[in-house]
């Protein structure tokens, strides 16, 4: 049975604290305003999906949340630390508490799979090699890779395996917060389903809070508790999937065209249950 927050009625529990707080975000790139007055809260334990048309600034917003781009105005707080103007040591603490899965994986091409996953652990400079090896091999098994895959170079991996290794690297420090940038983009339908089932399983095990950018309806239906819709330079809605799907906005109605039934309680629960069974333990 799934213990995710969305499956419980929203009114039964008080809203958990926000891990990410965005207030009054203004983004300007090459003279064009991308976001204006954008507010967003990501609550502990939830899976928030960020959707929006192409060019609406989803990836840019994600990069802002990661501190890779600096906003023109507004504040972004992650774990209560404001990004950008806090001490470096603070930022390092934040960065040890989150994991990021980049769209193309962004594995270090000069390092083997094992070394890629081990890198964040080695950075801590306090673990002995034996412990690092055990942790890395545990994580590789957890994402469904075989021990012999650890010796491979990133260039020898298939698209699905690259994502799995990247996920293992993102999760190696057991972060509270996981960012996924288009987790299923470029995967065939079968690998995509397996990967989504894997993320669902890991999320249950590790009690992750997840922020995900996606344009794939299946991924969205399988994973998202709440959906934030980016359009017209700000978030036009941040709400539960079923409510967002009925929003009278051209982008939203196009996005969910033909999927409305599946966003409702019964259809959604059924879809997720079959996915969990089919995916099973990898």
């Amino acid at each position: 049975m799934d213990g995710g927050a969305a499956e419980r009625p929203a009114s039964a529990v008080a809203a958990p604290p926000a891990l990410i707080e965005v207030r009054g975000l203004l983004t300007v790139m090459a003279g064009t305003v991308i976001h204006r007055d954008l507010d967003l809260d990501v609550r502990e334990g939830e899976m928030l999906a960020l959707i929006g048309g192409s060019g609406s600034g989803k990836t840019t917003l994600l990069r802002m949340l990661l501190g890779l781009e600096v906003p023109a105005a507004g504040t972004i707080k992650v774990f209560g630390h404001p990004l950008g103007r806090c001490a470096r040591i603070d930022l390092e603490c934040v960065r040890h508490r989150w994991g990021v899965l980049f769209q193309q994986g962004a594995l270090f091409t000069a390092l083997t799979v094992f070394d890629n996953v081990a890198l964040p652990l080695r950075e801590l400079k306090s673990l002995d090699p034996g412990m690092i090896e055990t942790l890395v091999m545990m994580k590789l098994t957890q994402v469904g890779l075989r021990p012999e895959d650890g010796a491979k170079m990133p260039s020898e991996l298939s698209g699905g395996m690259i994502k799995r290794v990247a996920l293992a690297r993102a999760l190696i420090l057991d972060p509270q917060l996981l960012f996924l940038d288009e987790p299923t983009a470029g995967l065939d339908p079968d690998s995509s389903k397996q990967f989504v089932a894997l993320i669902r399983a890991l999320r249950r095990e590790l009690r992750l809070t997840v922020v995900m950018v996606t344009h794939d309806v299946d991924t969205l239906l399988a994973l998202a508790d709440r959906v934030a819709v980016l359009a017209d330079r700000h978030l036009i809605a941040v709400d539960e999937l079923a409510k967002v799907a009925r929003l009278p906005h051209p982008f939203v109605s196009n996005f969910f065209m033909g999927h409305l039934q599946r966003c409702e309680g019964q259809g959604l629960a059924g879809f997720r249950a079959t996915l969990d069974e089919a995916g099973g333990p990898a």
Partner: peptide
């Protein structure tokens, strides 16, 4: 430059390196 193209620089940044 290639590390920029493959987002490896970003990956280092988010790891706090």
């Amino acid at each position: 430059g290639v590390m920029r193209v493959t987002q490896e620089l970003d990956a280092l940044s988010v790891l706090g390196i």
